[in-house]
Design a protein around this nucleic acid. Structure first.
Lengths: 342, 342
DNA sequence: CTATTTTGTTTAAACGATTAAACAAATGCT
DNA sequence: AGCATTTGTTTAATCGTTTAAACAAAATAG
C-alpha cells in the first residue's frame, strides 16, 4: 500500500501550515484567506490526489457518518430490499452503512452491536431478535441513537418503525372469510418476537370475531430449526386431517417459499382446494402458478422513516418516535382464482 | 450521547499510566506486569464497561479491519447471497463489511470506491460495472488491495474470482441440443461486461459447433433501461416469428424472473413448447410450474475465495490470483419435463 | 502618529489509542 | 559490596485531522 498523502504533505509543498490547508479544503474562514494561497493549496491537493483520512477526521470530530444496520439475514429478500432503501437514504445524507446479520440469534446480535458501537457508528438501525431486550436497554442507557425496524419491544421505550401486524393478519383472514373460506390455517414461527405474535393474535381475533369455530391444530407454530421438514409436516397435517383446511396464511416469505414448493409437490390445487396468503412479497410469489395474494409492507416508507428518525436523534435528545404503518393486501389468484372469477 | 470511557479514565481510576492499561488490555508484555495491578485494571475496565475506540486504534495502527463491498445491487438475491457469505467469512477473520450498490453505474461505483478508500478500508471486493476500468486501474496504481468478483477485465491484471461463463453457457446450450432442441434463443443485456459477453460467446459457439443454423434475431440484447417491457417484446418476437424458438436461455436471474412471468401470461407451455434455462438460482425459479433448469454458481466457494485472496493481499505484495470456477447445470423440469419423462 | 481593527497565517492542543524507549526499583550474581 | 539483570511502570511521540487562540502585518480610524 502506497504512502497516503496527508495535509502535512500539501502544507510542506505549498509552504504553509496544516491548519491553513485544513481551513481551505473545508471552505472555512472564507474571505479571510488569501485567494492566491487558497488556489495553490487546492491545486496542490488535486495534483497530489489528496483524499482526507476519514478515520482521523472521525476521531477528532467524534462523528463517523456511519450507520450500523443489523438485520436477521441480509440474504433474505425482505431485509436486502430494506437494506437497499436504507443505503440509498443514508447516502443522500452522506452516511455509509455497515451491516451485519444476526440470524435471529441474540448472541450474534449482541456481538454485532458491540462491534458497531466500538467502531463509533453514529447510530443503529436494528431488527432485533427475540431475547435481545437487554442489549436494547443497554443502548438506551448508553444514549446511543438507534431505531428498531420491523420488530420492537412494547415494554421498552424506543424509536421504532413497523407495520400493524395485528391488523395485517386480521385483514388477510377477513379476506379468506369474505371469499367464503371457513377452515383457515396459519403457519408461523414459534417465537416471542412481537411482530409474529401480533400476526397470530390478528389471525385468532379475526377467527373469533367472525365466529369461526377454531381448531387448535389449525395454528402451526414451527420450531426455528429444521424448518423445511417442519413446514412439510405442518402442511400435511393441515390438509390431510379429518377437517382439512381450505385457506392458509403463511406468516413470512421464507415459510411461504418452502410451503408453496411442498404444496406443488403434493398437488394441492390453489386456490380451488386451498386459498393461500403470505406475508411479504418476493419474485417467488409471482411465479407460483396462482400468483399469491400477499401482505405488502411499505418497505420504501419504512426505510425512509427509519433513517429520518435516526438522523433526527443523532446528537439531539429527542423524544422516541414510534411509527406503525399500515400494510396492504394485494389480492391475486391464490385467493381469487380463475375458477371463481368465471 | 454519554461520555465514553477511555483508557485515560481507567488509568486515572487505577492510578497508573494509560500505557500500562493499554498493555494489560491487549495482553502485551505478559509476565512483566504485576498480577495485582493487571487484575485491578481488568476489573476497572469491566466495571466502567470500557469499549476500545476502534477509530482511534485504527488511526494509530493504520488498520481498520474493514472490508468494502461494492455490488451492482444489494437487493438482487445473487448479490445479497454473496454478501451474506462474504460477511460470514469476514467475521471469521474479525473483519466488518461496509457495502454499497453501484446500480451498474460507473459514476456511482467511482464515488463508492472513493468513499470507502477515504474510510481507510483494508481492502475491497468489487463487482465492477462496465466502463469502470479507470477506477480499477486507479486502485492498482494506489496499491489498494482488492478482488473483483463475478466480473473482471481481461486487460487488467487484478485478483478476481469468477466462473467460466463461456463454458457455462456452452453447457446449457449443449443440454438444449441433447434433448433435441434446435431453435435456441437467448436473452441477455447489451453490455460490455466481460461475463455477459462470455455467456453470449458460449451460446454462439455451442450453436456453431453443433452446426445449428443460427438466426441473428434469436439473440436478443436488451438495453439496460425499461427492461421489463423490452423482455416482453423480445419474447414475443422469439416465440411468434415464422421460425419460433423451442428453447430459451436467460442470461441472468432478473431477466429470468420477468421473462417467466411473461411466459406465464402469454400461456407458453414449458418445456413442451419452450425449454428454458436460466443463469443463477432463486426461489422464484423453484416455484415456476416447471421448476427451472439453471446454471448454479458456486457462491459459497466464490465468496470464501474472494475473502481469502483479499486477506492474502492486505499488507503483502503478492502476485494477482485469478480464479475461474466451474458452474453447475442443475437439470429440472423446464428442460426435462414430465411429458418427456413418461 | 498612535490606537484599533482587519486580514492572513501559525501555534499548539486535542481526539484515544499504541509503542519504543527511558527509567526506577528490586533481585541476582560473584 | 558492586554491577548486571530482571521486573514493573512511565514518558512521550505518533497517527491525521480540527480548531480555538495567538500572533504579525497591513489597513483604517481618530
Amino acid at each position: 500500500m502506497m504512502k497516503k498523502i496527508s495535509l502535512k504533505d500539501i502544507a510542506n509543498q505549498v509552504g504553509v501550515s496544516t491548519a491553513l490547508v485544513s481551513y481551505v479544503l473545508n471552505n472555512q474562514k472564507e474571505g479571510r484567506i488569501n485567494k492566491d494561497v487558497a488556489q495553490r493549496i487546492k491545486d496542490t491537493a488535486k495534483r497530489l490526489n489528496y483524499r482526507t483520512n476519514q478515520v482521523a477526521k472521525s476521531l477528532k470530530t467524534n462523528k463517523t457518518f456511519t450507520i450500523g444496520l443489523i438485520v436477521a439475514d441480509i440474504s433474505n429478500p425482505f431485509f436486502s430490499s430494506l437494506a437497499r432503501i436504507i443505503e440509498d437514504e443514508a447516502d443522500k445524507n452522506n452516511y455509509t452503512v455497515i451491516f451485519g446479520s444476526s440470524d435471529e440469534n441474540p448472541n450474534k446480535s449482541e456481538k454485532l452491536i458491540e462491534t458497531l458501537v466500538n467502531r463509533q457508528v453514529d447510530g443503529l438501525i436494528i431488527a432485533p431478535p427475540q431475547n435481545s431486550e437487554a442489549q436494547i436497554n443497554y443502548l438506551v442507557e448508553q444514549d446511543i441513537p438507534f431505531v428498531l425496524i420491523d420488530r420492537y419491544f412494547p415494554g421498552i421505550e424506543t424509536n421504532f418503525v413497523a407495520i400493524d401486524n395485528y391488523k395485517a393478519a386480521y385483514t388477510a383472514v377477513q379476506h379468506f372469510i369474505d371469499i367464503g373460506r371457513k377452515r383457515i390455517g396459519m403457519i408461523t414461527y414459534e417465537s416471542s418476537i412481537f411482530n409474529l405474535n401480533e400476526r397470530t393474535r390478528g389471525y385468532l381475533s379475526a377467527m373469533k370475531e367472525n365466529k369461526i369455530p377454531f381448531k387448535t391444530n389449525w395454528l402451526k407454530e414451527l420450531r426455528p430449526n429444521n424448518t423445511k421438514r417442519c413446514i412439510e409436516k405442518a402442511i400435511n397435517e393441515l390438509v390431510n386431517g379429518p377437517q382439512p383446511i381450505d385457506a392458509l396464511l403463511f406468516s413470512s416469505n421464507t415459510i411461504a417459499a418452502w410451503g408453496l414448493k411442498w404444496l406443488n409437490s403434493i398437488d394441492i390445487k390453489v386456490p380451488d382446494q386451498l386459498a393461500v396468503i403470505s406475508f411479504d412479497e418476493s419474485e417467488a410469489l409471482d411465479l407460483f402458478y396462482a400468483p399469491l395474494t400477499y401482505i405488502k409492507q411499505p418497505l420504501q416508507e419504512m426505510g425512509q422513516a427509519a433513517i429520518k428518525i435516526l438522523l433526527d436523534h443523532i446528537g439531539v435528545n429527542n423524544k422516541p418516535v414510534q411509527v406503525n404503518m399500515e400494510a396492504g393486501l394485494i389480492i391475486r389468484e391464490s385467493t381469487i382464482g380463475q375458477t371463481e372469477l368465471n
